[in-house]
């Protein structure tokens, strides 16, 4: 088995084991979308136009949740030394860990996104587009988020620092993701926005 697969398997087992990380993130995501109608009023005419956008904000915030532990855990218990002495360069270790983060957290969140948007009054016909854009977007969130997590490694109160570093970097995926929905709603092609959204996971390497 190649070293990349060995690491990916372990990262996934760590993400799923001990505390059910994906379920917690999904719970946070759904709770966030449930609060919005209470804060903004339950009028469907108010909620419907912004349903997709709210789902996107919730997706971005829920993606932040588990970033703090992504590298911190390995740094504290010495596993990072072991990873640094492995056959893969650290860039590849980073990519594998970010990919595992997406598979464990981003993917379930993306599946929950259309549910949340429809619950807020979005047309069920848009579900495939919301799902598709959320899949690409959460991949972008995972890679840019992992970049922030790596930068904040070893600092006290890393979680807050990560949020401050990463949220501005989340702006492009949010613009293109919510933009794709907006363009589809107004009858334009969502593909250009989706293409740009698909490029955001490459941002750590730009």
């Amino acid at each position: 088995m190649s070293a990349g697969r060995v690491l990916l398997k372990r990262e996934l087992s760590l993400a799923w084991g001990g505390g059910g990380g994906p379920l917690l993130a999904c719970g946070f995501f759904l709770a966030l979308t449930a609060i919005v109608p209470l804060a903004a009023g339950g009028d469907p005419r108010v909620l419907q136009p912004v349903a997709g956008g709210i789902a996107w904000i919730a997706l971005a915030l829920a993606s932040l949740l588990s970033l703090e532990r992504l590298f911190e855990r390995d740094f504290e218990d010495g596993a990072l030394d072991l990873l640094a002495l492995g056959p893969l360069p650290l860039e590849a270790v980073f990519a594998v860990k970010a990919l595992a983060q997406w598979l464990a957290i981003g993917l379930p969140l993306a599946v929950a996104a259309p549910v949340a948007a429809i619950a807020l009054g979005a047309d069920p016909g848009w579900a495939p587009l919301i799902l598709g854009s959320a899949l690409l977007g959460s991949l972008g969130f995972a890679f840019t988020g992992a970049l922030g997590a790596a930068l904040a490694l070893g600092s006290k109160r890393g979680g807050l620092l990560i949020a401050v570093v990463v949220l501005p970097l989340f702006i492009p995926p949010v613009i293109f993701g919510a933009g794709a929905l907006e363009q589809a709603l107004t009858g334009l092609s969502p593909w250009p926005a989706l293409a740009l959204l698909g490029a955001t996971p490459c941002s750590p390497w730009r």
Binding site: G17, D77, G78, D81, L82, L85
Partner: peptide, 13 residues
Amino acid sequence: HLLGHLEGLKGAR
């Protein structure tokens, strides 16, 4: 091989 004070073992595994 580097074997330090911190052994990099994950408690839940």
